[in-house]
Amino acid sequence: MIQKKNHGDLRIVLEVWRQNGPGAPGAFEEHEVMANEHMSFLELLDVLNEQLVESGQEPFVFEHDCREGICGSCSMTIDGKPHGPRDRTTACQLHMREYRNGDRVRVEPWRANAFPVVKDLMTDRSAFDRIQQAGGYVSINTGSAPDAHAMPVNKENADMAFDAAACIGCGACVAACPNASAMLFTSAKLSQYTLLPQGQPERDQRALGMVEQMDAEGFGNCTNHYECEAACPKGISVTNIARMNREYTRATLRRRN
């Protein structure tokens, strides 16, 4: 018997994905939680987990840390949408006032071959780290930098670089894409450096390295569905993908020459 806590009068029926490991079979489990409109979605899962623990059952595993929409840890598809129904909002920032009494809500992990399920809602997103290791930086040793004002950056480019740099690496773009492509993520990282003078010296090797690593990780191709942009909690634009394609072509041609 599950002992229910009463935190409000919003009755929510949750269907949450349970899976013990990468190859193991998985299934949805149904649970009921009494919520309150001010609760965040993760607090709803906390309440569910506390109920489960106190009734001797295993809580659901899900990743979270900052609960402020910036660390990119939380990663779950809610009713078919990565991070849930609200635009530009991570799961941790979603609040229960989006729901009505009696709603049935389905929660599952990111679905992508390159993000295998570790347990329940937790997936392995280390592929993103490896893409960045393949070139997502400027090679400058500590202590050798010139004065910060030695290199002015035109504000328009600085702002565009910033828009790309706002990516939190959560993986919603991959989860939203029918091909599980990582183009939005990779291109955002690449664009930040392409748009800044600091990124110019390593431009070619960065584009080649990151794109080739992305392919090696088993992400799918981009076939222009633009689901990634719609799902991105930080509003990263698909124009970055076009920029990456140009950068990659340019680097390939120059490599041949």
């Binding site: 930086y137 400027v138 400058i140 500590t142 202590g143 050798s144 930098a145 010139p146 004065d147 910060a148 004002h149 290199m151 002015p152 950056v153 035109n154 504000k155 600085a158 670089a161 910033f162 740099a165 930040q192 450096y193 800044l196 600091q198 990124g199």
Partner: peptide, 22 residues
């Protein structure tokens, strides 16, 4: 002061003014 130099060289996108300075 060295921290700011280092971070700018790494491509950290600090806020800038229209003249391009930080």
């Amino acid at each position: 002061v060295d921290i700011i130099d280092q971070c700018v060289a790494q491509g950290v996108p600090f806020a800038r003014e229209y003249g391009g300075l930080l």
